[in-house]
Amino acid sequence: MGYDYIRPASLEQALSLAAQGESALIAGGTDLLVALHKKKRPAPGRLISIRSLPELAGIRDEGARLRIGAAVPLADLLAHPAQARLPALAKALGVMGSRQIRNVATLGGTLCNASPGADAAPPLLALGAGVELAGPAGRRTLDLAEFFRGPGRTALQPGEIMTAVLVPWPGAGTQSHFLRRSRVAMDIATVSLAACFGLTNNRLSGVRLAAGAVAPVPLRLRATETFLEGKALTDETLAEAAKLARADVAPISDLRGTAWYRRELVGVFLARALRAGNGGKP
C-alpha cells in the first residue's frame, strides 16, 4: 500500500490541491490510516497533509471564545492552560486512545471523521462549540450540532477544510461534566455524555446536554434540556430527565453494547452529571 503524500505550505495551496479531487486530507492519520489499512474506505490517489499548515495551528483566547486550530494535536490542547476552564473537554481528550495516539491525533481530525462515538464531540456540543471551514467558496462557520450528518458524514463540502474549532467560554458558574463507559481502557466508547449547566439555589439554568455512541451522530439531548431548564434539582426531576434522555437517543446494538444498555447508561450518566452539580460523584 503506497500513496503520494503531499505537504502543502499554506491553506491556499491545500485548498487548491483538495479542489482537484482524488485525494484525502490527512491530519494525525489515526483514523484515516486505520480505515485505509482495513480497506474500510476506498484508497485515495494521494494524501494531502494538513498537519503543519500555520492557519490550522495554535490555540488562541479571542476573549469571548477559545479558538483551537483544527490541526492542534490533542496532547497540545491538554497541555494548554485553557483546558482548566473546560474540564469536560479535558476529561474527554484525556481518555482518547493512548498518549502516543494523543500526540498525533488532532481535534479537527476527530470531528471530521464524524464517528458517532468520538469522545471529543459531546463536550464540544454541550459547550456550544462552532467550527470554522474554508473552501473553494470561501469561509463559513457552523454550529457543531449542524456539522454532523451521519456516521462518517459531515457538512463539509468537497474541497472544504476545517480550520478551527471555536469554543465559547462558559459563563461564570457554569459547570461541565463528562462521563463515559468503554469495555476496557483504549477502547471506543459504548456510551458517553457531557453536560453543561448552571446551578444556583438548586435551580438549573443554561442546560446543554450531549451524548455519544447512542445515535448516528453525536447528539444534543434537546427535549431533556428543555425539560430541565429552570427546574429544581430533585430526585423526581432526575428520574424524569433520565427517562426523557433515554427517549432522546436512538442507539443500536453492536459489538460494544446493546441498545438497551446504552439507553440505561444515558439515564445513569445524566443523573450522575447533574448530581455532580451538587458535589456528587460523577
Binding site: R183, V184, A185, M186, D187, L255, R256
Partner: peptide
C-alpha cells in the same frame, strides 16, 4: 472488538 484486559484493568 475482542477485549483483553489492559494494564489499566
Amino acid at each position: 472488538d475482542y477485549k483483553l484486559p489492559t494494564a489499566v484493568e
